[in-house]
Design a binder for these strands. Sequence first.
DNA 1: TCGTTGATCAACTTGTCGGTTGATTACCTC
DNA 2: GAGGTAATCAACCGACAAGTTGATCAACGA
Lengths: 114, 114
Amino acid sequence: MRDDALDAAFSALADPARRAIVARLSRSSATVNELAEPFTITKQAVSKHIQVLEQAGLITRTRDGQRRPCHLDPAALEALTGWIDTYRLEAERQYRRLDGVLATLKDQHSKDQS
Amino acid sequence: MRDDALDAAFSALADPARRAIVARLSRSSATVNELAEPFTITKQAVSKHIQVLEQAGLITRTRDGQRRPCHLDPAALEALTGWIDTYRLEAERQYRRLDGVLATLKDQHSKDQS
DNA sequence: TCGTTGATCAACTTGTCGGTTGATTACCTC
DNA sequence: GAGGTAATCAACCGACAAGTTGATCAACGA
């Protein structure tokens, strides 16, 4: 995943309204009006949020007459978790390594004492 | 994880410089100067990025004389992947369900034909 | 064809963000 | 205590993002 793609994706999820849209779309596809219904902001604002999510590649859109249903793209979400996990796992690996070193040192110390 | 915590965390990762810092810290802890070294921007700007990451709970800081080393927090990263996976898995489940329905319909159609 | 509805476009306001420069704090060393 | 170094604070600037209102486009139904 390219750098600007990660920018767009993380930035898209940094907004609670857009996360709510993602959550809603995980249950089923929905139109702009359906997605806008639970919000107090204008439909135009919701439309903008949707465009941000689409631009980030997190959702796709199809045509159904005058409707433009939105669909969540699980693969895009997986790419994000993939990025995060890369560094989370590396960090955990390093911490375990450090723990091992400390345990060895402590062991040495015990031996020296005896 | 609370809503504003997710705001802060995703927003923090939406910047390539901050992601680079996270990547660097996954290998080992580091001070502000060490983290600033690969960047062309000023040390103050890097310091701000670090504060953003700390505020978001993605990193922690300790004291070592006049140094203020930064440490990556794998648990915070895990919380993020947890949020994403919740909706990714739900979406995948829904898609599988839909595939099942379509398969059943197609099956019915074949039977009707015969 | 005309009114209605789903959705977007355009222009504008407001607030926040990333970056800079300059000054300041805190700690270490000699 | 004096000087040097790690790091932050404060004030400022330009750019961009979220939201609004008003107008517009495109497709449907009677």
